[in-house]
């Protein structure tokens, strides 16, 4: 079996910077785990520690039943896809894919069989004799994936593999990666800063911030019940409305059940609807800007006329005028309360 288990893994760089501060994580066999977070949150460092490209300063990392802290990258039975693909520029596509197998002394006909099979799966057969520079970005990406799958490793590691592609290709490759991972059922760890990529690919989504795991779980759980303010603000587009509630309340905002203490109230733009009635939450806002993106529209408004900005998502293109006063309501199950001091969920 090839589950990956991290136990309070730490990375301290010489000079004392702590990039990863004790991360514990379990990735089940065949699971697709996505690490997401802002740049500098330690997600790439964590991936590189699993790969063996960075030493582990503390804690243990195990792949299968084996603790791999001191194991060379080549002996960890992993394969990695890099952001810039890292194809060997002087080797043909075929040699790029075969190189790792040759170094391991795989028999020639076995190499040939595996490379051709990978090429068939990834549809790069016509380019096998070409050099990487004669390929487009998407084709290079496929070759990089091919190099990973020919090895039949226990774990795939992806380090922002789609960042260098254009938007259209990125969506296409995202779907293909997901399909491929399903078909091969290989444990995968995928690093990205794109939350849409993270949401769509992950079986287990891990949101990281400042070297720590903020929350790990199924993507939909993170969306529905973010456990910290950070996760609430990070997952979802446009982002969740987060309002710091003073004890005296905010002008223009009324809650059916008032809250006490310094809390932050969160409500997603898609959970607000325009209505004259009262809900668990009712907010009055003055429209400052509108955006129509086709099937839906976003209304930007100032709470109570001059308060913090609120985003409301409405279906269709029936847009209010700038400066109009509106009331938006939300149901109680869609309200998120966080402690303002600790950032932790309260309800």
């Amino acid at each position: 079996m090839s589950e990956v288990r991290l136990q309070s893994v730490r990375k301290v760089y010489p000079g004392g910077v702590e990039a990863v501060k004790g991360v514990s994580l379990e990735i089940a066999d065949g699971q697709f785990c996505v690490l997401v977070g802002p740049s500098g949150c330690g997600k790439s460092t964590l991936l590189r520690m699993v790969a063996g490209l960075e030493t582990i300063s503390g804690g243990t990392c195990s792949i299968g039943d084996r603790i791999v802290n001191e194991v060379e990258p080549a002996d960890r039975d992993i394969a990695m896809v890099f952001q810039n693909y890292a194809l060997y520029p002087h080797m043909s596509v075929y040699d790029n894919m075969a190189y790792g197998l040759r170094n391991r002394g795989t028999p020639k006909d076995e190499i040939d069989r595996r490379v051709r099979e990978a090429a068939r799966i990834l549809e790069v057969e016509p380019f096998l004799e070409r050099k990487p520079r004669a390929l487009s970005g998407g084709q290079r990406q496929r070759v990089a994936m091919g190099r990973a799958i020919v090895r039949k490793p226990k774990v795939f590691l992806f380090d922002e593999p789609l960042s260098n592609l254009d938007a259209k290709l990125r969506i296409q490759m995202r779907v293909e990666i997901k399909k491929l991972q399903r078909a091969l059922a290989t444990t995968s760890i995928y690093v990205t800063h794109d939350q849409l990529e993270a949401m769509t690919l992950a079986d287990q989504l891990v949101v990281m911030n400042k070297g720590q795991v903020e929350q790990a779980g199924a993507p939909i759980t993170l969306y529905e019940r973010p456990m910290t303010i950070f996760v609430a603000g990070f997952i979802g587009a446009p982002p969740m409305n987060l309002l710091d509630m003073p004890a005296t309340g905010l002008p223009g905002l009324s809650l059916a059940t008032p809250v006490s203490g310094p809390v932050t109230l969160g409500v997603r733009p898609e959970h607000l609807e325009l209505s004259a009635e009262n809900g668990a939450l009712a907010i009055d806002l003055t429209v400052t800007a509108v955006e129509a993106v086709g099937a839906e529209s976003y209304i930007y408004g100032a709470l109570g006329g001059q308060g913090p900005e609120i985003i409301v998502r409405i279906p269709g293109r029936d847009l209010p005028a700038i400066g109009a006063s509106l009331r938006a309501i939300a149901r109680s199950e869609n309200l998120h309360f966080f402690s303002r001091e600790t950032g932790i969920r309260l309800n």
Binding site: A74, M80, Q83, N84, N103
Partner: peptide
């Protein structure tokens, strides 16, 4: 690029193999 060194490491090429297979060409 450093990634080439790292890819070589993962592909099981030692330092001298990296030198002759990748760096020299």
């Amino acid at each position: 690029p450093d990634e080439l060194v790292e890819a070589s490491k993962i592909d099981g090429a030692g330092p001298m193999k990296f030198f002759f297979d990748t760096l020299l060409p």
